[in-house]
């Protein structure tokens, strides 16, 4: 017990700031992948065959590529070889590369979650929208997507939960986040090794459980009555 308390004395502040990094990664990547995923979903349901083909290819490529590889690619190839730099600050640059990597990966899943939501909207809704003279984009924006999002809350919640936990992969992109710190702590404080694991796990559980409860609640509350 004494040992565990001293771990907090030694690393408490760092753990907090490292986990804050995970939460920031989650926040920005969630916004990014919601936007990109929505655009991809629109492409996949659009009447234009080349858009559909692009959307399908994107989803199949990035859904099936390990996140670690996307992260490593960002750092070693984008930054290392092609010198792509989002920010002049060294650490901030890696942080932003990690956000881009997380966004690229998770938008494929967001796209599919939204598409599952689109499937909850009866075909007649789109037909009625077309029949009053709305073309594809207005019909999608005003009729299909508002109902699709409400039908996709639960699967979108799953993607968010996966994203929160996947921010730990940013360690592959040299970002100071909690799983990187965990390694360091394990190295220097092997005496409380198991407790370190458990502590980090609890960090995530505390954040993830409310997300799950909230999305389940919202998916019932906002369900479209038919």
């Amino acid at each position: 017990m004494q040992g565990y308390l001293s771990l907090w004395d030694e690393y408490g502040g760092q753990m907090m700031s490292a986990f804050w990094g995970n939460l920031q990664l989650t926040f920005w990547a969630a916004i990014g992948s919601l936007v990109l995923g929505t655009i991809l979903a629109l492409m996949r349901i659009s009447p234009v065959p080349s858009f559909r083909a692009f959307g399908t290819s994107y989803v199949n490529i990035f859904r099936n590529t390990p996140l670690t590889i996307i992260m490593t690619f960002g750092v070693l190839v984008l930054f290392g070889v092609f010198k792509v730099q989002f920010s002049s600050d060294f650490n901030l640059n890696f942080f932003q590369i990690a956000i881009v990597g997380l966004t690229i990966y998770h938008s494929a899943f967001v796209c599919e979650a939204i598409r599952s939501g689109v499937n909850t909207v009866p075909l007649g809704q789109a037909e009625a929208a077309r029949a009053i003279g709305l073309s594809f984009l207005p019909a999608a924006r005003m009729i299909i997507l508002p109902q699709a999002f409400r039908g996709a809350i639960a699967p979108l919640g799953n993607v968010l939960i996966a994203l929160i936990k996947n921010t730990t992969v940013a360690v592959a992109g040299s970002v100071a986040e909690i799983s990187g710190l965990m390694k360091t702590m394990l190295e220097f404080r092997a005496d409380v090794g198991i407790l370190i694991f458990l502590t980090i796990a609890v960090f995530f559980v505390i954040v993830v459980i409310p997300v799950g409860l909230l999305t389940t609640y919202l998916s019932k509350k906002l369900a479209v009555a038919r």
């Binding site: 009866p122 007649g124 809704q125 037909e127 009625a128 929208a129 029949a131 009729i143 508002p146 109902q147 409400r150 479209v224 009555a225 038919r226």
Partner: peptide, 9 residues
């Protein structure tokens, strides 16, 4: 339409 298709939301 047969199934009305009013915008449900």
């Amino acid at each position: 339409f047969q199934s009305f298709n009013l915008f449900a939301h």
